[in-house]
Amino acid sequence: MAKDTINNVKLGLFISSAVAILIISLYLIGRNQNFFGSNFYLRARFSNINGLIAGNNVRFSGIQVGTVDKIRVIDDTTVEVTLIIDKSMKPYIHKNSTAAIGNDGLMGNKVINITPNKIASPVIEEDGLLFTRKAPYTDEMIEKLSSTNNNVEVLSFKLVNTVDQLNNSKALWSILNDTTIPVNLKLSINNIKEASIKINELMDVIHEIAKDLHEGRGTAGMLLKDEKAATDIKQAIANIDKASQESVTAIAAIDSVVQQLHEDMFYGKGAVHTLLRDTQFVSRLNHSMDNIEKGTAAFSEDMEALKHNALTRGYFKKQAKKTKSVK
């Protein structure tokens, strides 16, 4: 009898554990399908549901929030999908959220993705209709891919042509085969390198100069920085200005003198005017000069006559001897 009781306990444990496992499994499966717990319904209308079936998952911002309850055709272009959503998600789903059909992985089941909108909007009511967005379907993707393929084909054809032309280009091959080009290139690069080093040095010098200028060293620096020099220069400029003003008066005075001179020269009675302007004076001068010439010639003849004169001959001989002895 006691053994029977123990056996009964064992049997009870055995059966209840199996029943518990079955119930827990059914509950877990049911929870995934939203058979238990508090839910609410939402609707979404699509033109094409792409193989979505009842029981597919619904995600809100990537979180599993419910499943597809039923699908019914409203008219020839509209299919209405009813979604069962966990009631705890209700405060987060707004009226302007959009539903789109997507894929769970590359080969997975269809899912409905509900995406929230950033613009504020009231919370959706039960059995409300969600906006829908057309997701890129595989067929459309393949269509696009085929047009891309066509483009690639054209591109590759053109590429082949280009490569042919490049291959046939003698100029290009001569450039590619020319072994001196790399050497020259290397030299050029070296030169550039050297030039850049020199530019660097130059920049250092310029930097130094700029530093000197900044610190007021050197003539230029003094010009830029020394306030005393600036005052001196200002003074000098003022002096120059003054001098120039004075020179203007001086020039005016000189001008009046010249004017006077001019008038005197042309219209005055002085010696200069006579020399320059009196033609009568010139003819008289010429006449005087003629007379002097004639006088001189007569004097020469007289002198010749004196040489041959007995009274004076001896003197002239004495003079000639004196000149010879000097030589």
Binding site: L22, S25, L26, L28, I29, G30, N32, Q33, F35, G55
Partner: peptide
């Protein structure tokens, strides 16, 4: 496992 299973399986 439970994500995969449905009542129709069990």
């Amino acid at each position: 496992v439970f994500n995969t299973l449905h009542f129709g399986d069990v």
